[in-house]
Each structure stands twice: as C-alpha cells, then as structure tokens.
Design a protein around this nucleic acid. Structure first.
Lengths: 237, 237
DNA sequence: ACCAAAGTTTGATAATCATCAAACTTTATC
DNA sequence: GATAAAGTTTGATGATTATCAAACTTTGGT
C-alpha cells in the first residue's frame, strides 16, 4: 500500500540533495574533530547567512528551521535553487577549490545551525578518507540533481514544475520523527513562486487548480498533498 | 576595442565548462601515466558514446569534432545540457563516486577522442595531488555553471536563452588557433532548439528575429554572430 | 484590539510559446 | 543526377504565462 509512495520517493532521489551527506556516519576521530570545532549559530527569519561571491568561511549543519539558497538577478528577480531542512549539511562545495559562493543563502524561518570553520573542515577532510569519499559522492550527487532539475525546468510548464517542487518540499518538511508521509508544507507564496520559477499570480492559480482536482488542500498558507501519485505522474519524470 | 568582447567572455566564464580542466598542465609523471594508458576512439556523426545510467568506463578527451550531452525524456523530448568541443575533458565526475552517468552523450559530427580507462584514471588521481586539486576545482566549477544556467532557463524566455546559447556556442566553435572572435556556429536547428530548450519552430523564428535586428547572419545552417554586445545584454546576466 | 504593512487572491489583458499542417530546401543514396 | 528522405521554414491557431490593477486577508507592532 505504501508501495507507491516508496516508488515516488525513490524517483525523487536524484532531484534533491536530502541525505546526500551525513557526518553522523563518519568514524569517531574525524567526527569528534568536527564536533569539537563546531559552534552554534542562530538566524532570525529573513536573515542572510551568506551572499553570492562571498568567500566561504566554513560549512553549516542545519539543526532547526529552513534555509533557502537563491540567486538574485540584476532585474530584481529571484530564483530559489534549493531549500535546506533539518539535518542537512551545506556550504562545503566552494571550500574544496578556494572558490566563492555562487549563490546566496537566507533563513525562511528562525534557524539554528552548527558552523564548522573552513580550516578545521579542510584539515579533517585531508585526514579522513571516509569524509573525502562522502564529499565526492555528495558533490557528484548534487551535480546530478542540478542536471535533472535543469531538464525539467528548461522543458516543462508550471504545472509540472510545481508538482515536482511540492513533492520535494513534502520530503523536506517532514518532521524528523514523523510517521505519516504527508507533511505540512508551510512556505509563503512568493518563495514558492521563486522556487517553482514562475510569477506569484500564476503560482496561486496553479495551486488553486491542483486544489480543485483534489491533488492537495490548503489551510492558510500551508499546503498538504492529497494525491501524491497524480502529482508525480504530472512531473513527467 | 576588443575590450567589450573580453568582458563578455569573462561574463560567460561561469556559464560553460570550457577550460575548466586541463590535463596538459599536470606534472610529467601523472601526465605520462595518463597518456600511456590512453587509446584513440573514433565516432561517426550521431553515434552514441554512452547512455544515461551506464556505468562510466573511463574519461574522454575530445580531440576533434563536437559531442552533445543530453537527457532523453519519457515523452521523447530531448534536452541538450552541454556541448563539448576540441580539447575538453569529460566523463570523470561519476567515476569519483562509483555513480552512473546521469546523461547520455553522442557525436554531433565525426569525432576523435582519447579514452583513459577508469582504473588508470583513479590510480593517477590518488597519486597526484595536482590532478585531484584540478578535479575538485572542475567539479565545483561545473556545479556553478549548472546553477547559473538553471536560473536563466527557469526564469527567462527563448530570446534570452538563445542569446546565451549562441554566445556560448561561439566560444565552443572557435577553431583552436583562430584569431578572429567570430566563429562559424554550425549546428542543426533541432539540436540548437534542444539546447536552448524550445520548439524547433520557435527557435527558427527567434533566429530570424535576431537576423532582422542584425544580431547575427546565417549562411545555410551556419550562424555568425554580428552583435555580441546586443546578445549579451539580452541574456540579462 | 487596532492599525498599517505585508502578503494573497482575483480579474483582465497582452505577450509568449507550442503545436499542427504544409511548403520548401538540403542532403543522402542508389 | 534523379529521387527519396531528412531537415528547415512559414502560417495559423490555441494554450500558457507574465503583467498590471485592485480587492481582500493575514500578520506584526503598538
């Protein structure tokens, strides 16, 4: 019975970063080294963590809240590229090559993070084969995700993009120990429009369409998916 | 006078892979090791090099011709993600993490390549700090490219996408020792449509528009850019 | 609890784009 | 070099989407 949901979940694997990196599974030594160096950061809603072209200072582990990663264009338009949720590790890629952040990051709700400074992370990386293997795997996975999402966004309309975005957000917004598979997708319409790559108005209308078709229901700004399969089929992936 | 062209070229850096990896600059030892293990491959136009979900067998260095890297969707539509030209090295990313190819690759014209088997490449990688640094840098750059292109494709219309695509292809199609900066962009319309992410008909019409505005001229299927600045401004990047 | 500000929804309109059909041009093959 | 096949272009039409304007709802601050 949960078979379909599992299949969908599997089909989405290469469309989001979730679980691509887990520092928990490292051997004790590197894990301790990282833990010892980590400090806690709190971010208020809307606060910016880093900006495009900043030099990366370290890596982040999101303990609580949601972070959006986006690009701000010259004309003021915003594209949200990914959204990080509880447990996700990010910010390490540009560290690997002395590069700059190609994106900006900001809190979409109050957040708590762990911060591990660049030097410690790089040191641990050069000491631990396990960590460097995990990082390579993650970096590869992230590229695959971008390629797959690119194809959808380059070719499909808003119904398809939104269906995909909602399915991905459902996974993101599941609480750590939640048993049910229906998450409360609580995100403001502007962010969701910028994530799905469309205008606010068009987004609102598409949500309404989905609601009429019983693909989802809304309570205030929260969205609950009701028909996973229909949305999944719609994505065309 | 060439100032504007240089600026445009620089602005495009984070939108294509070109020059992101150069095995030439390696120290003698790893370079020799790779060279010794390399074998030559010839591909006829339209021949497939590898397919999505294939396990990667090694890396490729394109000596002659052009390779398209694409995804084929269930509905038969195709998205070309990048096009490789003379001198470019590719296929190494999924090797780093025992992954599969997320994309397919095929020749758009007769090609000659060097092939270096997976085992030798990975051995050389673990021996050479220079190589592994280059690879990390490339992988990071490639991710940045995908992120930047994603934003353009998720947000902009076909005029913008085509302008960007043509500027990128102009760099790709420059001959190795060409002095002038205007390349002959020789590519069939279907491939170009699949690269720019639009329908064949819409592509043809947009090219015609650009031609009327003197942004470019066409001779048969070949395209020559005439107004780089106008196209660059159009991209919005 | 009130008010202002921010965020959301709806309507109307115009621009953009995909699709189908058909003509035309180039390329490949015998 | 004739002919079929493949590729390109043009036209017409409908669907999708962006944009502007205005009303409505929720939220945050006093």
């Amino acid at each position: 019975m949960n078979n379909i949901r599992d299949k969908i979940k599997e089909g989405l694997t290469d469309f989001h970063f979730n679980t691509s990196l887990s520092l928990e599974s490292l051997p004790k030594k590197p894990k301790l080294q990282l833990e010892k160096a980590s400090t806690k950061i709190s971010l208020k809603k809307k606060q910016i963590l880093f900006k495009r072209n900043d030099s990366p200072k370290g890596i982040y582990i999101l303990l609580k809240g949601k972070i959006k990663v986006y690009q701000l264009n010259y004309d003021g338009s915003i594209q949200i590229l990914f959204i990080y949720a509880h447990g996700e590790v990010f910010g390490y890629r540009p560290l690997l090559s002395l590069g700059k952040h190609p994106v900006s990051a900001a809190a979409i709700e109050d957040c708590e993070l762990l911060f591990i400074p660049k030097e410690i992370f790089l040191k641990t990386l050069s000491d631990s084969v396990e960590l460097s293997n995990q990082i390579l795997k993650s970096v590869n996975h992230e590229f695959t995700v971008m390629v797959n999402r690119f194809t959808v966004f380059a070719q499909r309309g808003i119904k398809e993009r939104l269906a995909l975005s909602l399915l991905l957000l459902n996974e993101k917004f599941l609480l750590p120990n939640q048993i049910t598979t229906e998450a409360e997708i609580k995100i403001n319409r502007t962010d969701l429009a910028n994530y799905a790559g469309t205008s606010l108005e068009n987004l609102v209308r598409t949500i309404k369409q989905f609601e009429e078709k019983k693909y989802l229901r809304t309570i205030g700004k929260s969205i609950f998916i009701e028909n996973f399969e229909a949305l999944y089929i719609l994505t065309g992936i």
